[in-house]
Simulated scan of single mutants.
Amino acid sequence: MQPELQNQQPYQPPAPQQINAAIPDGNTPQQQPIGSGQQPVDQTSKTQSPKDKKKNGAISTQNTLLFSEMRDNMIIMSDGSFRAVVECQSINFDLMSAREREGVEFSYQNFINSLYFPVQILIRSRRVDIGPYLDRLAEIRRNQDNMLLNVLMDDYMDFIDVLAQEANIMDKSFYVVVPYYQKGDESVTKQQAKGLFNSFFSGKKETSVTKIDQVTYTKAKDEIKNRLDSVMSGMFQMGVKSRQLNTRELGELLYTSYNPDTSSRESLASIDPSDLTTTYITKGQGPPPAGRGLL
């Protein structure tokens, strides 16, 4: 029995004109994609010159620093303003009586109302390094002849070591930053309203040198001294001991602020300032030395 093939039609290849119509040639305009947005531009044809690449390079760390130098116990900022820092000791407010607390609160209120210039209160929390303390205890133990005291010191050292590993022992420092602006304190408020992040994302900046004449510097130094006396007098009324940081201590404060991890291992206290002969740090040329990876 043969199958029925009456309803089937033989296959006919399409005409050449139909095949050519399905494939667009160079003269036929292509159909635009759906959407009302602007069509993407081919970026492969654009090439950047070496000057444009250098101009669009990464921002240097030195250009992002907001200070220029430190001199006469002051920090000279990149915009020509000045800063002085007062370190304050803490007081135990919780152990005070109600009358003592009220006296501290009124003194703080009078201190804030007496200020005619802006101040910044800085609180820094750092993890305490117990290593030097344990090394000192180990040195005392080696010089101890009493066996009972040696056993007690071993237990105490083990307790301190375990406690430092399990809990974060923090040390808080309190500072009051006293500024001085050449253009006045009110005009600086508009400048600070632009935001700090503009300096990081505004592109690569050229290294600028801050120039201040002797008259302006002397005036700023005298005004900073008057403001420091006002701040330290207000702190004394609250029962808070305070002192101004010198130039070396200002450098250590900035160093520990910008390098929190490195400063715990490499301290500036053992470095002689006369050994620092290089003012600016530049990037080295060529590949890094063999055997040293990037940090």
Rank of each mutant, 00 (worst) to 15 (best):
P3G: 05
N7Q: 09
Q9I: 15
Q12C: 07
Q12E: 09
Q12M: 06
P13V: 07
P14L: 03
A15F: 08
Q17Y: 08
Q18P: 00
N20P: 01
A22P: 00
P24S: 10
P24Q: 04
Q31S: 11
Q31W: 04
P33M: 09
Q38V: 01
Q43M: 04
S45V: 09
S49L: 13
K53G: 12
K55P: 03
N56F: 12
A58H: 10
S60A: 13
T64V: 08
L66P: 02
M70Y: 03
I75R: 00
I76C: 00
M77D: 00
M77H: 04
S78E: 11
R83K: 06
R83T: 03
A84Q: 02
V85Q: 01
C88L: 04
Q89K: 07
N92R: 02
D94Y: 12
L95H: 03
A98M: 03
A98F: 01
A98I: 02
E100H: 02
E100Q: 09
E102H: 03
E102Y: 03
F106V: 06
S107F: 08
N110Q: 14
F111Q: 00
Q120M: 11
I121M: 15
I121Q: 09
R126Y: 05
R126E: 14
R127M: 12
D129S: 11
D129I: 03
L134N: 01
D135H: 06
R142K: 13
N143L: 11
Q144V: 10
D145M: 10
Y156M: 02
Y156G: 00
Q165N: 01
A167E: 07
M170I: 06
K172W: 01
S173I: 00
Y175I: 09
V178C: 00
P179K: 07
Y180H: 04
Y181K: 03
K183M: 05
D185C: 15
K190S: 10
A193I: 14
K194W: 12
G195F: 02
F197T: 15
S199L: 12
F201D: 12
G203I: 12
G203R: 12
E206N: 14
T207A: 15
T210G: 12
K219F: 10
E223G: 00
E223W: 00
K225M: 11
L228N: 14
S230N: 11
M235S: 05
V240Q: 03
K241I: 06
Q244V: 07
T247Y: 01
E249D: 14
L253R: 06
P260N: 09
P260D: 05
S263D: 12
S264D: 06
E266S: 09
L268I: 04
A269R: 13
P273C: 05
L276W: 15
L276T: 15
L276F: 12
T277C: 03
T277I: 11
T279R: 11
I281N: 15
G286I: 11
G286Y: 07
G286E: 08
A290W: 09
G291T: 15
